[in-house]
């Protein structure tokens, strides 16, 4: 598998570490249910998902990849922090 790092370009997946579904962290007072959703419950679709990868052996950016879990096709990859690559 090769991931299109928005900074480094396409790289072998062995340079990356996976974190899983990209979700927004709830506010501390968002309540038990929101936190349960964030930490544990997943749609886990057989299809496109957005997920976090860490380019640990490259630029050390966290990136957000849109990847199809059924085919491994990758349709998008952006910096997890949004804009501002350097």
């Amino acid at each position: 598998m090769r991931l299109p790092c928005p900074i480094c370009g396409p790289r072998d997946s062995r340079e990356f570490i996976y974190r899983g579904t990209a979700l927004d962290r709830p506010a501390p007072d968002a309540g038990t249910e929101a936190w349960e959703e964030y930490l544990h419950l997943r749609d886990n679709p057989a299809g496109p998902i957005r997920e976090f990868w860490y380019h640990h052996a490259g630029c050390t950016a966290w990136i957000e990849v849109t990847r199809n879990t059924a085919t491994h096709e990758i349709s998008d990859a952006v910096l997890a922090g949004g804009e501002g690559a350097a």
């Binding site: 570490i17 974190r19 962290r25 976090f52 860490y54 640990h56 050390t60 950016a61 966290w62 910096l79 997890a80 922090g81 949004g82």
Partner: peptide
């Protein structure tokens, strides 16, 4: 050490931009 470095990167790049 490596795991903490990654953790800090996640905190600063993703959670606390």
């Amino acid at each position: 050490a490596g795991e903490v470095m990654r953790h800090l990167d996640f905190a600063k790049q993703v959670l606390r931009r």
